[in-house]
């Protein structure tokens, strides 16, 4: 493998040497940048521009020249609502269901996840035995694929699964968890927290470990109560990290798709359909494929993400300066 690689590299050297003589050393930088910039251009920037064209055209054809211009109609279709809080009054009721599901999902998921991550990080930051092991325990689900996570929990939660067996064993009643909208949604949130909290725990833990020890020692000298120490030292010094974690969790939460889709398929009904699944189903899985509507929804999602990313950049800057 390595010898194949190095002979490829030796062959590449010939044209590179030619370019070096032709362009000079500093302009050779562009040659090194070229593959990356071409890939960015073709697969990121070009799509951004085409995205707007899709959002403004209709029909189910993928090729741009086959698509009739419809102006803002896609956005109007999505926004045609008697009452935005009630999806039943909307023309695209499926879209608004997905929007409200996502809003609730993000609130619950981010809330529980950041809370639990903070608690876990605080506990892991104490002097405990086998800290590395326990850190790995909370972290390892981060590495599992979303489909595997979904199947693991589906297997535990199925009608004749182990959870129902345990519940009936202690005298409680089992449930068809996946057939009940509320439970399916609740478990989706749970599994998403289960899969991702290790990542945020890790970030918060490194934030906690960056707080200098002598600050705590000074507080101890001054006989500050533990609660006061937490309020006046830990919280303010951890705040920048908390902000980064919070915004990062929001950005990722809004884009949740894989694990929930593999877990429930969006059901029962549309109880766990999130916004990215709406885009996927409208543009790719359904017939006709409504690319325009999917693109319009994407642009609305992009708007939310841009706002969140701007927040993130400010949070990052503050955490580096503070």
């Amino acid at each position: 493998m390595l010898s194949v690689l190095s002979s490829i590299m030796r062959i590449v050297e010939i044209p590179m040497l030619f370019l070096q003589h032709k362009l000079g050393i500093n302009r050779l930088a562009w040659v090194f940048l070229a593959p990356n910039l071409i890939l960015f251009g073709v697969f990121t920037f070009l799509p951004i521009f085409i995205s707007a064209v899709y959002a403004l055209t209709g029909g189910d054809k993928i090729l741009l020249e086959d698509r009739p211009f419809v102006g803002m109609q896609n956005f109007r279709t999505l926004g045609d609502c008697g009452n935005f809080l009630d999806p039943d009054t909307c023309r695209s009721d499926f879209f608004w269901r997905a929007v409200w599901n996502t809003v609730w999902f993000v609130i619950l998921q981010v809330g529980f996840m950041v809370g639990l991550s903070l608690l876990t990080a605080l506990i892991l930051n104490q002097k405990i035995r086998a800290r590395g092991f326990f850190r790995a325990v909370f972290f390892f689900p981060v590495l599992l694929s979303p489909v595997v996570v979904a199947l693991i929990w589906k297997w535990v939660l199925q009608k004749h699964g182990v959870l129902n067996a345990v519940l009936e064993g202690v005298g409680l009643e089992g449930h068809s968890w996946m057939l009940d909208s509320t439970w399916a949604f609740g478990w989706s949130v749970f599994l998403s927290v289960w899969a991702h909290m290790g990542f945020y725990t890790l970030i918060l833990l490194s934030g906690l470990q960056a707080i200098p020890r002598d600050v705590y020692e000074a507080a101890l000298m001054d006989r500050a109560s533990p609660w006061r120490t937490f309020r006046r030292i830990t919280m303010p010094l951890l705040a920048p990290t908390m902000l980064v974690v919070l915004v990062l969790a929001l950005i990722k939460g809004v884009q949740t798709f894989d694990e929930v889709f593999a877990f429930t398929g969006g059901g029962p009904g549309s109880a766990t359909t999130l916004i990215v699944q709406y885009i996927y189903q409208t543009g790719f899985a359904g017939a006709p494929r409504l690319f325009g509507l999917a693109s319009a929804a994407s642009m609305m999602l992009a708007f939310v993400l841009i706002v969140l990313t701007a927040l993130q950049m400010r949070a990052n800057r503050r955490s580096f300066n503070g």
Binding site: L37, P47, Q255, I279, G283, F284, A302, T309
Partner: peptide
């Protein structure tokens, strides 16, 4: 170029699915 790279950080794949599909096709 650096700014451009930062810019792409802000474009998650989920929001350009449809046009990315066209380009790939």
């Amino acid at each position: 170029v650096l700014m451009l790279v930062v810019g792409t950080l802000m474009v998650p794949q989920t929001v350009i699915l449809v046009p990315l599909f066209l380009v790939t096709k």
